[in-house]
Every structure is written in C-alpha cells, then in structure tokens.
C-alpha cells in the first residue's frame, strides 16, 4: 500500500513537470506574446520595456526553470491579463466547474444505472430497444448543439430552466457561509440542469450501455445462477450480486472520463455563459496568459491524479481480486 502511494507520488511529479513543460513550450513557440500586453501605439522602447517586465526577453529554458523554481515555492506567477496571482484566478473559477462536472457525473450515473439495468433485464424487448436508441443518439450529438437546442426549447420556449448563468453553491460553502450556500442550493441546481445534461449526455449514454452489457455478463455468471436457484428474490439478486459487479466498469470509466468531461465543459461553459475554469483557460490560451494556463493545467492534472488514485482505491475495495 505505502509503496503504491509512493510510486504514485513520484509519477505525479513527472506528470506535473510534463504538463507544465508542454503548455509552456506550446504557448511560447507561437510567437512573442508581448504585443498582447502593449497598446496599439506603443513605441519600440515601450515594447522592449514591456517584454523585459513580463520576462519574455530571457531565453526560454531560463524562463521555464525560473518558473519551476517559483512553483516549488508555491508562487504560480501573476496573471498577465488580470494582474492578480494566477492561482487565485484559477481557484476562484474552480468551484463553479466542480459543481458542473460533479453534477453532470452524478446525473449521468443516477440516470444511466437504472436505464442500463432495465435494459439488461428486458433484453431484446421494446423497452431495451427504446433505451438503447436513446442512448445511441445521446452519444452522437455534439454537445454545443445540444446546449443551444436546450436553450431554445427548455429555456426560451418552455421557460422551464434559466437560459444561462450560474448561482454559486460551493464557493460560499468553502468560505464557510453555510446559510448562503444552502439558501442558494435550489437555484444552483436549477441553473445547473441544462449545462449538466449537455456535458453529461455522452457519459450518460455510454454508461447506460456499459451497465447494460456488464449486467448481462454478470447475470450469466454461476454465482448469480446459484443465487437464483436458491430462491433468493430477483431484486436481491440484482442489488446484491449483479449490481455490485456491474459497478466496476462504471467506476473505472469515471476516472478516465474526467479529462473527457472537462473537454465538454469548455464548450458548454461558453454556450451557457457559465463562469468556470474551462472558459477561463480557453480565454487565457487565446490571450497567451501563460501563468493562468499553467496554474489551470497544474490544478487539472492534480485533480486527475487524485481522482485516479481514489478510483484505484475504490476499485480495490469493490473487487477483492485487485491488490494494490
């Protein structure tokens, strides 16, 4: 167990160095970002001064090494557009994105598992066909388009959900303002539903199919047959035996899917004007706000590493055959 954690820690450091190096190089080879931070009429001297001020006049490897040195002292640099500590900018946008990803994953799991089970139990029946058609289509629609369609239909035409925006829940919660956080919660969820569906539709659809196929597999297993033959009720069989094992692939996928869901978040946050990390980092890349991009990439990689660690631990618990 401890060697496992230690090995993971070492791998994480390598990953962090890798992701920062890649984003650093990518943003630098595109050309000198200085021009984005001087005004239109800036003279050559002014541009030179800005370049020196921003540190872009130093050789690339020096820039990167000094960045790594700063990061080791937990200094993530100052955002070039906001002129505030880059990590603060990212962390301020993080709670909204966590709400969105988490809610869309929860939605995807809560809806997909019963759908998958029903589908498996009624295999080959119209119910199964209907659910699987729905899932197939859900997996095939580009999510920005789904978002716009939902805005037009459920937002504008039916007025069921707010068209765009966000009411914070996690941020007041983290700040210790519980009254405000829980007061906001109903509104938060109301605002979250459409973006969460747009982000999670693919995951939902795929998980439904995943649950169905692993259920089918498990239902064929000897121990399930044995349980059935012992006269244990069908519900018990499903809940205690089949479901427990059908979980495994879903859990695995959640770890792998994080980066994937985050990709959806960039697009969906733009459509629903949702103030999260996805939009922030997209703008930061466009603006060449390198410190913000770097800080965001580090945060995202850390979450990814942590999530996969948790998934592995859960996996080890769920499946006794797995040893860490």
């Amino acid at each position: 167990m401890w060697t496992f954690l230690l090995r993971r820690l070492l791998q994480s450091v390598i990953v962090l160095i890798g992701v920062t190096l890649i984003s650093f190089v990518a943003l630098q080879i595109g050309g000198d970002p200085t021009y984005l931070f001087v005004s239109e009429n800036a003279s050559t001297e002014e541009i030179e001064r800005a370049r020196a001020l921003l540190g872009f006049d130093r050789p690339l490897h020096i820039q990167y090494l000094s960045y790594v040195w700063d990061v080791m002292r937990l200094d993530f640099g100052t955002s070039l557009t906001f002129r505030q500590p880059a990590m603060d900018v990212v962390l301020a946008a993080l709670p909204a994105s966590i709400e969105l990803t988490l809610f869309s994953l929860i939605l995807a799991i809560v809806i997909s598992i019963p759908l998958g089970i029903v589908s498996a139990l009624y295999r080959g029946k119209p119910v199964d066909g209907g659910i699987m058609t729905f899932a197939m289509i859900g997996q095939s629609i580009p999510n920005f388009w789904m978002g716009i369609m939902m805005i037009m239909f459920f937002g504008l035409y039916l007025s069921w959900f707010p068209i765009s925006g966000h009411v914070p829940f996690l941020r007041p919660l983290f700040q210790g303002d519980f009254a405000r956080a829980f007061g906001n919660l109903p509104q938060t969820l109301h605002y979250l539903i459409m973006p969460a569906i747009a982000v999670g539709s693919y995951t939902l659809a795929r998980n439904a199919r995943l649950v169905r196929s692993s259920m089918l597999e498990v239902l064929q297993q000897d121990y399930v047959r044995t349980a059935r033959s012992k006269g244990i009720s069908e519900t018990r069989v499903i809940v205690h035996h089949a479901l427990r094992n059908a979980w495994l692939p879903v859990v695995t996928m959640i770890g792998l899917e994080f980066g994937f869901v985050l990709g959806g978040v960039v697009v969906v946050e733009t459509v629903f004007s949702y103030p999260g990390v996805g939009r922030l980092v997209f703008n930061a890349i466009n603006q060449r706000d390198i410190p913000v991009v770097q800080a965001a990439v580090i945060v995202i990689a850390l979450i990814f590493i942590l999530l996969n660690l948790i998934v592995d631990l859960i996996y080890a618990r769920l499946d006794p055959r797995v040893k860490l």
Binding site: I14, V15, G18, V19, G30, G263, V266, I300
Partner: peptide, 23 residues
C-alpha cells in the same frame, strides 16, 4: 507509459486548443 500519463492528465481539449491557437 509516463508520457502516456502526462497525456492523460492533460485534458485533450486543452492540448488541442493550445496547439491549434499556436499552429
């Protein structure tokens, strides 16, 4: 495999945006 870990920890969309903005 470490290169792979790096790639997986780097959400593909960010990588794509970064390189397409630059290239």
């Amino acid at each position: 495999m470490r290169l792979g870990d790096i790639q997986l920890a780097f959400p593909f969309i960010l990588l794509a945006i970064m390189f397409l903005v630059v290239l």
